[in-house]
């Protein structure tokens, strides 16, 4: 395996993005910031890969216009996944492993505010036996949360602690859309919204985009003084059907974490769009009491669809660059109730 590192990360997030669903206007300044960070130009990038969704934008081929932000003449080597951009990062990491390229720029974007997100996501379910009922994301998460509560795997207080920690941590994150010091009791004082969930147990619906630059060891030193070296990146998927798996667990997260070597990380950025999902992930990834969780505030502070997972990897890498962490993981999830999970473990050297 070649040594590959995260050497650049930029993001923009907001409650509602005023521009087009292609998010080109967001990507232009993000790319500019990455070139400033790395000292590179587009000609230094060997491979481009993005993650986005047509159904989020409400039109076919929504990713096509985003290519304009690259300035893709002369043509570029480029690919796209209909997934969170964390999986685009995986594809880019693979491309670098083949030896065909030494560098890659990965981006994700989405304007969830254009539609009714919790309804749109019902289209991710079984189209024959589930989608016609339009089960919304919050209800599915609520059923998962209740199972855990009633089986004694967690309680409302533990969930509230996740929320309070997120809101407090988000104070330091200029891109978080939900932030403010909060105690566990403050959270518990809120009324229930989708019993057993409070609104604050749910990630906000917001817009945004993000991008990461990867480089192989031959080039990483040019762009960063302390690159975040990827020591393991793995992803797995569970069955979709809610009855076909134990919803209080996430076997795919556990398997990805184990394969990626998540043991011993001192910091983890977890993509948990609902508070109890952070509790599941902590256990499945074997994170200890000493692991610093979501210093960015995590997805409960801001959860831009199709880039939120990539942002977790970027936020973790940032802490390594800054010397705050020696071994960190970034996690991404996709699908209902933590169906699909990716873990990227990085080290500073």
């Amino acid at each position: 395996m070649r040594d590959v590192a995260v050497v650049g990360f930029a993001q923009r997030q907001m409650k509602e993005f005023e521009g087009s669903p292609t998010c080109v206007e967001l990507l232009v300044p993000i790319f500019a910031e990455l070139f400033e960070q790395t000292g590179w130009t587009k000609d230094d990038i060997g491979f481009w890969c993005s993650g986005s969704s047509d159904y989020l934008a409400g039109r076919s081929f929504s990713f096509v216009t985003a290519v304009d932000a690259i300035g893709a003449l002369p043509p570029v080597m480029e690919s796209h996944v209909e997934m969170d951009a964390a999986w685009a990062l995986y594809e880019a990491w693979i491309k670098i492993q083949t030896g065909e390229v030494d560098t890659a720029l990965v981006y994700g974007f989405g304007k969830a505010s254009a539609g009714v997100l919790r309804r749109t996501l019902a289209l991710q379910l079984d189209p024959y036996t589930m989608t016609p009922l339009w089960p919304d994301t919050v209800s599915i998460a609520g059923m998962q949360a209740r199972l855990g509560i009633e089986h004694g795997r967690w309680d409302a207080r533990a969930m509230a602690a996740v929320v309070a920690h997120s809101r407090t941590s988000s104070l330091d994150n200029e891109y978080a859309v939900l932030k403010g010091a909060m105690s566990v009791d403050d959270v518990l004082a809120e009324e229930l919204y989708a019993d057993p969930l409070r609104r604050s147990d749910c990630a906000p619906v917001n817009d945004g985009a993000a991008a990461i630059v990867l480089a192989a060891s031959e080039r990483a030193g040019e762009a960063s003084t302390r690159p975040a070296w990827i020591t393991g990146i793995e992803h797995r998927v569970d069955p979709l059907h809610l009855g076909a798996r134990d919803l209080t667990r996430s076997p795919s997260a556990a398997a990805a974490g184990k394969a990626a070597g998540s043991a011993g990380v001192d910091l983890a950025e977890l993509h948990a769009p609902f508070s109890h999902q952070e509790l599941i992930l902590r256990e499945e990834l074997g994170l200890s009491e000493n692991t610093r969780i979501n210093p960015s505030g995590g997805a409960l502070g801001a959860n831009p669809m199709f880039s939120a997972g990539l942002i977790r990897i970027g936020e973790a890498a940032k802490r390594i660059w800054a010397g705050e962490s020696d071994k960190a993981l970034g996690h991404a999830t996709s699908g209902p109730a933590l169906q699909q999970n990716l873990v990227c473990v990085m080290e500073g050297r």
Binding site: D54, E82, M83, L121, Q124, R236, V237, S334
Partner: peptide, 27 residues
Amino acid sequence: DLFEGVMMPELYLAEALGAVGKPLLRV
């Protein structure tokens, strides 16, 4: 995805594709 009206159908197809417990990528 608008062709079949299923958003990211690989999620619902994971079992039929024999992908459960494995890496699954959608291009």
